[in-house]
Write a protein that binds this DNA or RNA. Structure first.
Lengths: 220, 220
DNA sequence: TTTTAAATTGAACAACTGTTAAAAATAAGG
DNA sequence: CCTTATTTTTAACAGTTGTTCAATTTAAAA
């Protein structure tokens, strides 16, 4: 019921470099294991051994299993939101916004990170998909993603003053789920299509798909 | 590795009426608990007590936990596929197909069942979302859903002869994920929008969204 | 009614779960 | 270097997990 990330109590000494490293190692391991097996399927012992560390140390650095999950999700969420808002601001300065450019500002940073940062951001995509689909993480979603999402929804609403916000937010949620499907379910796209499916090949298509969908829905 | 549903060995007597009832009760309970907590989060004891039954009886009727999951998913998948293909055939007999009518044939049966059948089909939607998002259930997806999905993808391809099948299958996967988002993430749509969001109110919008998206992507 | 295949119960199993507490090792701050 | 806050290790806890097996009850088939 309480949930959230408890603020760590006042320190009297700076954390050692080694401590910070193992903490990061634990977070990375947790991210990977949570992404692979979900919250319930992941065990703290799996995470510990993945990080090359004792079980108790995971609790020490991450707190409760649930707190650890929060931390892992929140960690990259901040970086991601910042990148998205930055892209949005830069684009806004370059002239009037279009729906497609808005979606590119939202999708772009993620997919760039996924292609550059490799494994980590891919695992994180699975994590976000898990969080987005489960009402159990409603509060976590509200805390990490809703502020930025709301911002983009509002921008889109400004482009379609006559459309009800509910319609826009629905279209936005569909679009996010489509993006997550691209990141997490390429195997399924491949199974129904033919040939390999690389992310970069599908990105433009995705933006076209989502933009056309939202536009059509917004025009009633 | 093996997985799948083992064929039950040759019986020498017909199952009693009571036996069939408890089996059905166990399947319903399993469906609900799996949908609420996911595969790992669900415990056989939860399922057993939900069905008002002993734990061992769950194994007796459902086999392994994994086999039970297969059975639960497969049970309604057959009914669903049949309804979709029937709707498709009926529509085809009434004249040339359009993209929107195709999507209505695919989405319609599910959402009708969800509105009529109530709880069961709603829980099942969450189940399908779980299955679709996790590569762990790749084989299950291939067995239960790919045949029908492939059929619809082919029909859409026929409408866009110049578009690569990969593009169509991607658009189709996006659309399915959007439909599942509507069924499982209405809370999120509500959080980003304003006012209550009823399924029926969003259904038409969903079809418009998906049809416009696929059409735009298919036209290059 | 009798036979006996099948359904149901009850109990136990070995393995694993998240979490805590105390002892030991480490290194920051003086 | 010395003190001691912090990190790491070790060990144990109280529950829960999926599954199995023998005993018991139920009811289909003769």
């Amino acid at each position: 019921m309480p949930s959230g990330i408890p603020k760590e109590k006042q320190r009297q000494r700076a954390p050692s470099k080694r401590s910070l490293e193992t903490r990061a190692r634990i977070m990375d391991a947790a991210e990977q294991v949570f992404a692979a097996h979900g919250f319930d399927g992941a065990s703290l012992r799996d995470i510990a051994s993945e990080a090359g560390v004792q079980v108790a140390l995971v609790n020490h650095h991450g707190g409760t299993k649930e707190e650890l999950f929060w931390r892992v999700v929140a960690r990259r969420a901040d970086e991601l939101s910042a990148a998205r808002l930055k892209a949005l601001a830069a684009r806004k300065a370059r002239g009037p916004l279009t729906l497609r450019s808005l979606l590119e500002c939202f999708f772009g940073p993620y997919l760039e990170k996924a292609e550059v940062g490799g494994t980590h951001w891919f695992a994180y995509a699975r994590l976000v998909a898990i969080v987005s689909a489960d009402p159990r993480w409603r509060a976590l979603t509200a805390h990490c993603f809703d502020p930025t999402a709301n911002r983009f929804v509002s921008e889109i609403c400004a482009l379609y003053p006559q459309a009800p916000r509910q319609t826009i937010s629905a279209g936005f949620v569909y679009s996010v789920s489509a993006m997550l499907a691209l990141l997490t379910s390429r195997w399924r796209i491949g199974a129904l299509g033919q040939g390999s499916s690389e992310i970069s090949e599908h990105l433009d298509e995705l933006v076209i798909y989502c933009a056309a969908g939202i536009d059509a829905a917004a025009r009633r």
